[in-house]
Design a protein around this nucleic acid. Sequence first.
DNA 1: GAGATTACATACATTCATGGATGTTTGCAA
DNA 2: TTGCAAACATCCATGAATGTATGTAATCTC
Lengths: 222, 222
Amino acid sequence: MARRTKIEAAATREALLDAAERVFREQGVAHTSLAAVAEAAGLTRGAVYWHFRDKADLFEALCARVTLPMEAMVASVGGARHDDPLAALRTLAIDGLTRLAADARAHAVFDVIFHKCEFTAELATVVERQKSADRGCRTNIERLLKQAVARRQLAPDTDTRLAATTMNSFMVGVMHQWVQDPAAYDLARTASAMVDLFVAGLRACPPRRKTAAARRRTPARA
Amino acid sequence: MARRTKIEAAATREALLDAAERVFREQGVAHTSLAAVAEAAGLTRGAVYWHFRDKADLFEALCARVTLPMEAMVASVGGARHDDPLAALRTLAIDGLTRLAADARAHAVFDVIFHKCEFTAELATVVERQKSADRGCRTNIERLLKQAVARRQLAPDTDTRLAATTMNSFMVGVMHQWVQDPAAYDLARTASAMVDLFVAGLRACPPRRKTAAARRRTPARA
DNA sequence: GAGATTACATACATTCATGGATGTTTGCAA
DNA sequence: TTGCAAACATCCATGAATGTATGTAATCTC
């Protein structure tokens, strides 16, 4: 086929990403050939290999369209100082879930990431990006938690690291399960109640750092 | 090769499952050929096709070895009456996580299920079993929650359905994330603190059923 | 406006997985 | 103890996916 203009080329790139999103979601990443992606976009493999090095590169770009904005959101909230850090954390979490429920593209991509994809050697680069993004998310959560401790919103001996990990797991779990069966309940409507439940748990019974005194009380087990 | 005795045959079947567990975990389900599974077990594809119809059948059997006992555990606790239902729920959750941390086979299988497998048409039967097991789990959690409401451990207007879903999501999230990076923290040691956080949230701020009065207060939107 | 390059399509060679057919012992039942 | 079927191994034909190489027309640049 003939050469297209630059903007047309950018459009076909987006079209390829859109097509990949659909086909990956229907058949799974490993089970779809790049020919199938091309066909779904009304193109040929030549177009795919022109715009992307291979399937991993395509998949990475596809994820980036959704995860980059989300990471930016988390980083922006986590990087700021707040008068009410716990409220900021709550809002951040609810926004994340609401976004997932409202944004069809985010919905699709998370469906692929959670249920239609194998994180193996082929996608090693994607795995690394995913893991570092996850670390960044936990770090930012922990920043907010530390502010909350400083503001006396949380117990002074709160284990902020473990609390952040737990919160991250909670969010991932909600997304994972909702995406698996979005018809089960209306996430947009329940998001705040779910997050409030978790935040209340954080206030009432956060994980505690093991103090020297506590360690003496339950010394060795052997 | 010659015919083996019945117990020998059962042993090779187990060997095939063990091998599949290893190879699936390393390469992902879709990315591993049945030849690779056979080779890892020191056998040939003939053995695989003798014991299992296809890859889905093999994968299903592999999952069943760990999920069936777990489902039985949940059903047994969920089916009984308890003087302290919330404590029973707490113990159940902690046991689940502890089991995951201690049982290498459970660890491996959940790693495959969460991160090394695509739930597509090829594994349709597995998906259905998974979903129904999930429903059963939520049902049993909700049974305990209803008992907790009856015993005044939880607010009378608790939305037990949503609470059960939230708890299920929480558990899945913790497992999902820990399995992804088990070196990050010692789940066996943190399990109780993580579960306690959630249960405290349940007591302090459970999701509420929308009463008629509440619906009147926030009537229609557009 | 002429060449260099872009944005694809097409063709090709290679590799690999699958399923089925077939072979071969040998345990087990009558 | 004979005969059947279990418990695999081996072989083959087929199809499909990948990466690369090449073709080609239009577009951008100078």
